[in-house]
């Protein structure tokens, strides 16, 4: 399923809404999650999962082609942990 299919399904379920509003609803959900993480916040969606930011320390990396050492800066990366309900559903426990 891709973004446009998700929008279409939600639009089909809500014929009273304008297509452009359904697009804005879906886009707002994803935009809010990114904005929260960019601010260093967590987003916890019980049953679905939680988005958080993890810190990666600076390290000495290596260019795999040349074998040369390169300094990799410390950085923050997005992380997702699946919620318990969804994890159970994936394994057939409804």
């Amino acid at each position: 399923m891709i973004r446009s299919e998700l929008i279409q399904k939600l639009a089909d379920e809500n014929p009273h809404l304008y297509q452009r509003d359904v697009e804005r609803i879906v886009n707002t959900v994803f935009e809010e999650i990114i904005e929260a993480m960019a601010a260093g916040d967590r987003v916890e969606l019980r049953g679905f999962g939680a988005f958080s930011v993890k810190q990666r320390d600076a390290r000495i990396g290596r260019n795999p082609r040349t074998g040369e050492s390169v300094e990799v800066e410390a950085k923050h990366v997005p992380f997702f942990k699946t919620g318990k309900l969804l994890r159970d559903r994936l394994n057939g426990h409804e």
Partner: peptide, 22 residues
């Protein structure tokens, strides 16, 4: 940095603000 935790409520509040549904 604030380090809040957002929930469904914050997402629906954003949708409420952006789209103007109830």
């Amino acid at each position: 940095m604030a380090n809040k935790t957002l929930t469904r409520m914050d997402l629906s509040e954003a949708v409420f603000r952006e789209v103007g549904l109830s």
